[in-house]
Amino acid sequence: MLTDKQPDSARLLILIGPTASGKTKLSLEIAKTYQCEIISGDSMQVYRGMDIGTAKASPEERRAVVHHMIDIHDPDEPFSAAEFQERGSRLIAEITARGRLPFVVGGTGLYVESLAYGYQFSDAGSDEEFRAEQELFLRQHGAHALHDKLRAVDPVTAERLHPNDSRRIIRALEVHHLTGQTLSSQLAGQKKRSPYDICIVGLTMDRQLLYKRIEERIDQMLDAGLVEEVASLRSQGYSDELVSMQGLGYKEICACLRKELTLEEAVTLLKRNTRRFAKRQLSWFRHMKDIHWVDVTDTDQFDKHLRLINGIIEEKLINKTPQQ
């Protein structure tokens, strides 16, 4: 587990922002300027074969800048914030040892924050009987009823988790059952002192423009073959019920392929769900500390935004004195 910051602590650069805010393009330029290696902070990009729907950097982009935490699990393998933190902390040490700057880029708030501040994850253990009871409840009453159970005891965590994320919902209920404490209260009690010399840049933009960009991105994903990607995963035997297949884009297209929705209905639902996801991302980021916000609403001013971000990095990380 990470320790408190030491005088010779590693530097860590982080770029966060909601989906479709332009993180990838900016991150590539920043990485080239500061000799970075990028650590993906996205909980879905870890899965092999899930490329279009997770908006992974292209092979060309990954050849230009080294990327980590992409394609490290098959879609039927579990992945958690605790594993992300463990792998990420090891990567930071390795990248630093190579004389390069570790650069976390992503939009999964808990994952990024847990790495940035060295969170201690719950050691509550497990109660297999309780877990089986919740899984039976899920089968009998459905995902929304299970989500409502969590909302009743831990509304903060319920707001963060999608109703279809049954694995994490059951774990949050299990933590409350075993400890009498909510998962959100445990997270709120974490120390917010980073073990790193840290610089966090956050992207923000006009909400309506962000929603327009989200819808355009989804249209591009469909043109790039999102439906075919989901169909291929299903043909390989990956169940629609997997956590990975409940991700944005995959869940809605699975419903279409099961003939429960038309493609038009699935796309409308996907756009709505992604707008809601972006809203949840922004809500999480607003509760984080140490963020230097850059408004990127004027998308024609990419060079200006890049200069602003580079100025923040220079002041807060590169040229930082020990007293700062």
Rank of each mutant, 00 (worst) to 15 (best):
66 V>K: 03
90 R>F: 13
4 D>M: 10
221 M>N: 05
38 I>W: 09
29 E>R: 15
110 L>T: 07
83 E>W: 05
90 R>L: 15
16 I>L: 04
208 Q>A: 14
312 I>C: 00
281 Q>I: 13
37 E>K: 12
116 A>W: 04
248 L>T: 06
215 E>G: 06
318 I>Y: 13
166 S>W: 07
169 I>K: 01
285 F>D: 03
285 F>N: 09
44 M>R: 15
251 K>R: 15
100 R>W: 10
152 A>D: 12
285 F>P: 02
289 K>C: 05
66 V>W: 09
55 A>E: 11
291 I>E: 07
192 K>A: 02
10 A>N: 11
45 Q>V: 01
308 L>I: 05
188 A>Q: 15
114 S>R: 09
41 G>K: 08
108 T>Y: 07
51 D>P: 11
23 K>T: 13
217 R>Q: 13
310 N>L: 09
241 E>F: 11
161 L>V: 06
229 E>I: 00
241 E>L: 10
233 L>N: 02
266 A>H: 02
49 G>I: 14
193 R>S: 13
49 G>N: 11
129 E>D: 13
2 L>C: 05
235 S>P: 01
322 P>M: 07
69 M>Q: 10
90 R>N: 15
27 S>L: 03
166 S>P: 03
40 S>F: 03
231 A>E: 02
7 P>N: 00
147 H>Y: 08
129 E>N: 12
209 L>E: 01
321 T>A: 14
250 Y>H: 07
115 L>V: 03
89 S>M: 11
74 D>M: 12
218 I>R: 00
64 A>Q: 15
131 R>H: 13
81 A>W: 01
149 K>S: 08
261 L>H: 05
315 E>Q: 15
21 S>C: 13
203 L>A: 05
59 P>T: 09
279 K>Y: 14
165 D>P: 12
314 E>V: 08
228 E>A: 05
164 N>C: 14
147 H>G: 04
77 E>L: 02
317 L>N: 00
133 E>S: 14
245 M>Y: 04
114 S>L: 09
149 K>A: 12
201 V>R: 01
130 F>L: 04
38 I>G: 05
187 L>F: 10
250 Y>S: 01
321 T>R: 15
258 R>Y: 03
128 E>D: 12
219 D>P: 00
324 Q>Y: 10
190 Q>C: 09
318 I>F: 12
37 E>N: 01
48 R>H: 09
90 R>V: 13
18 P>M: 09
280 R>I: 07
275 R>S: 08
